[in-house]
Amino acid sequence: MTFGKIYEKTRIWILLIIAAILPFAVTNNYWLHILNIGGIFAICTLSLNLLTGCTGLFSVGHIAFYGIGSYTAAVLSVKCGVPFLIAVPCAGIMALIFGLVLGMPALRLKGLYLAISTLAFGEIAYRVFLNWESVTNGTRGILGIQAPVFFGINFRSYNTYYYIVLIFLVMTVVLTRNLIYSRTGRALLAIRESEIAAQALGVNTVGYKIIAFAASSFFAGIAGALYAYEVHMIAPESFVSTESITVLAMMVVGGIGSISGSIAGAFVLTMIPEVLRSTGDIRLVLYGAAIVAIVIFAPRGLGGALEWLDHLLMGNHKKKVREEE
């Protein structure tokens, strides 16, 4: 048993254990909140990665699905008193329906034209959040979203809610991973590389693109719902199109198509503005500069760096396996 072999077998569990004991190490509520937001954005980034990274369908309005999920959960919870475990899947399904509504006609478009239609969709969604007073309360937003309660435990505090986010994040990772490594995932990759070639090989491109849209918007909706329960109040300002760009940046900084990268990208880009908070107004300037720097100096993204580290730690073991193959 070499170190590399042990590492390869245990790395997932070590990571999970570290994630599980993190709230005990971080006692500061503020940082716990940032961690939760990072986790929620990680889910959102993963969902975008499925659509843009794997399938090559460029979306610049992804925050709309996140917002739809958020508002669905908030309205269900506040106005109808629906419990957490029902509201969250409902939010996902609502986002999925809108994903199909956007996806079906948008499938005729390619590249930048698809991008602009998603941009338009995001913009329209934001206006609706802002102006549909009777449901969304307009600029005032929806207040008083109750924290979930399971087995008599109230998940209001950040360190308990952390575990809910963690569970959803792990579920999302497992599901997207399984999807990417399945027949469907290979079909999606084929579409990204060349749609015509995929078609020629008998891939039902329309069907698979719809699957990609549906799955992606579903997870984004879930992330939005989790966000609503994390902050207890939502307003349209959280869903402006700049946020879509932020999610896109998280994906690229993490590395396109990489699962570990998406998670790392989401956490890093959520943390950077907070770490820089002490620097005052200049923090967002540095944030922008940091994105440029990461893109220039780490072209494969954080995911590439993580993979490199992974291979280093696995050491000789991996090489041997390759030689045997």
Partner: peptide, 16 residues
């Protein structure tokens, strides 16, 4: 896509 993100970074930077 990478270059696109770089331009987004620049725009955040300049705007702020």
């Amino acid at each position: 896509t990478t270059r696109l993100i770089a331009t987004i970074g620049v725009s955040i930077c300049v705007r702020n």
